[in-house]
């Protein structure tokens, strides 16, 4: 069964860069959202298995999304994809439940490694 992936970033360009860096052989259905509020709305409409989440966004940022997911006990694997590469940012999002932190510009190999680590990709 294909994996439902939600890509959340305010930049259409960044979403495009990320989607192109996903493994071509990964069986997925991709949905996109341009801010945190939209992401949560998508999430609540159905199933999201994996969320690629940007941190710096207008409306509702990535931290607020992580907070909401945790508070409301919502369940999906969140991989933070951010240009904010401060060590403190990485530690913060991990403490908030993200399974991984991927630096922008995204590296296809790094994404593959994370997906394999979590058994999302064989």
């Amino acid at each position: 069964m294909s994996v439902s992936v939600l890509v959340v970033d305010d930049s259409a360009m960044a979403r495009k860069m990320l989607i192109r860096a996903l493994p071509p052989d990964w069986d997925i259905t991709v949905t996109q959202a341009s801010n945190g509020a939209e992401a949560l709305a998508h999430y609540r409409q159905g199933v999201v298995d994996v969320m690629f989440l940007d941190l710096t966004m207008p409306e509702m940022d990535g931290y607020q999304v992580l907070e909401t997911l945790r508070r409301e006990d919502l369940n999906c694997l969140v991989i933070v994809v951010s240009a904010d590469i401060q060590e403190a940012a990485q530690a913060r999002v991990r403490a908030m439940g993200a399974i991984a932190f991927i630096k922008k510009p995204v590296d296809a190999e790094r994404i593959k490694a994370v997906l394999k680590e979590y058994g999302l990709l064989v």
Partner: peptide, 20 residues
């Protein structure tokens, strides 16, 4: 413009990490 915004975003992240 979108490309510039994303490229600036990444540059800003690197600058932020440097002063942090």
């Amino acid at each position: 413009r979108e490309a510039l915004q994303e490229v600036a975003n990444i540059g800003m992240g690197q600058a932020g990490a440097s002063i942090a």
